[in-house]
Structure formats: structure tokens, C-alpha cells
């Protein structure tokens, strides 16, 4: 038997909805596990990629310095990098803040907003610094494939991964192509 494909996943500025949708493959996950195994992923709680990973699935866009760091690590270790979902592809809903100055966002959330108690902008050194705007991941690293959708359906993940595993060029039939 040939070596299993290794798959790493991460969620940057996303909502984990794409990961949930991945799990919606349900019993097909068992079949997938016969040809692939997880590497770094919130699903395995492995914190860093192995030296070489076959496929890296990235959910979410870039809203802070840690996102950029994580994305660059993924790109370094993953042979194939995949932007998964609207946020990774175009910033998605987090990018709605992009036309509001960052200072104004922080003021609304932590100082002046309705219901704020003990106002104060968090500035613990452990907290990653926010970027002034949310960016899609292709603006920072080279991305090999894109799976649109909010989230992409389980069928999309299944089609994509089984195409790759079988050595086919992945392609989504038009009923699977959605931006919403």
C-alpha cells in the first residue's frame, strides 16, 4: 500500500464553519481515512506541521499578525495549499471592518460600545496585533487551489480530496460552485 496523503488544516480569521462542513462528510470520513491522515489540525490538536505535508487546507482570512505567521508556516510545509471558503478567498465577513479605521473598531468594541463593562483595550503582549485590514490569503502566499463557499459543502471537500488522491486535476462541477 502506498503512503497515505497527509492533510493539515487551520482556521485563521474564520468561524470554523468550513471545518464543521468538512466533518459533514460523515461516514465518508472513514473512507477518507483509508487514503489520508491528518497532520497539524485543530481536529488533531497537533500544533505544527510535519516537515512535508501533502495538502494544507486554510480556512479564514488574515486579520492579525499570528494569522500571517501561521499561513507562512503552512506555505513552507505544504506541497499543495488550498484556500477554503469565502474568508480565505476574499476576506469574507470579517472584511466588513475594512472600511472602518482600526482605532474606531477597537473603541466601539472595548470602550464606547453598548454594554461594555470595565472599558479598556486589551494589550497583553501575548495577544497578536491586529492588521489594519482583513486580507484574503492569496495576497500573502501563493495558493494552489480555491474551494469557494460559505462554507464549501462536504461534497466539495470530498470531490476535491478524492480527485487529488486519485491523481486527477481537481475540478468542481458547476452545481458545487457557490460563493454563499
Amino acid at each position: 500500500m502506498t503512503e497515505k496523503l497527509t492533510v493539515a488544516t487551520t482556521s485563521l480569521a474564520g468561524c470554523f464553519g468550513c471545518h464543521m462542513s468538512f466533518l459533514d462528510m460523515d461516514e465518508r470520513l472513514l473512507e477518507l481515512m483509508t487514503i489520508a491522515r491528518f497532520d497539524r489540525s485543530p481536529l488533531t490538536d497537533i500544533k505544527h506541521c510535519s516537515e512535508r505535508v501533502d495538502i494544507g487546507l486554510v480556512e479564514g482570512g488574515l486579520c492579525n499578525a499570528e494569522n500571517v505567521h501561521t499561513l507562512r508556516e503552512f506555505r513552507r510545509h505544504c506541497n499543495i495549499l488550498v484556500a477554503v471558503g469565502a474568508c480565505a478567498i476574499n476576506g469574507g465577513l470579517p472584511a466588513l471592518r475594512n472600511h472602518i479605521p482600526l482605532e474606531e473598531c477597537l473603541r466601539e468594541a472595548y470602550l464606547d460600545g453598548i454594554g461594555v463593562e470595565q472599558p479598556g483595550i486589551p494589550n497583553d503582549p501575548e495577544l497578536p496585533l491586529l492588521l489594519d485590514q482583513v486580507h484574503p490569503i492569496h495576497e500573502v502566499v501563493v495558493v494552489d487551489y480555491f474551494l469557494p463557499g460559505c462554507p464549501p459543502s462536504a461534497d466539495v471537500f470530498w470531490k476535491f480530496l478524492t480527485d487529488l488522491a486519485a491523481g486527477r486535476e481537481p475540478s468542481l462541477p458547476s452545481p458545487m460552485l457557490h460563493y454563499d
Binding site: 468542481l172 460563493y179 454563499d180
Partner: peptide, 27 residues
């Protein structure tokens, strides 16, 4: 700023549908 998941026209939008027709996967 075309954020389809938050747009009430999604599914009836000609720009989005043109993207689908042309196999547009990214921006």
C-alpha cells in the same frame, strides 16, 4: 465589496452567476 455570504441578492445576482458560469474560483 462583493461579499456573497452576507448579500440578500445571493443566488439571484447576475455578477455572481457570471462568476459561476465562467468557473471563477477566486478573486
Amino acid at each position: 465589496n462583493h461579499l456573497c455570504p452576507g448579500c440578500e441578492k445571493s443566488g439571484d445576482c447576475l455578477l455572481q452567476a457570471t462568476g459561476y458560469h465562467l468557473g471563477m474560483l477566486n478573486s
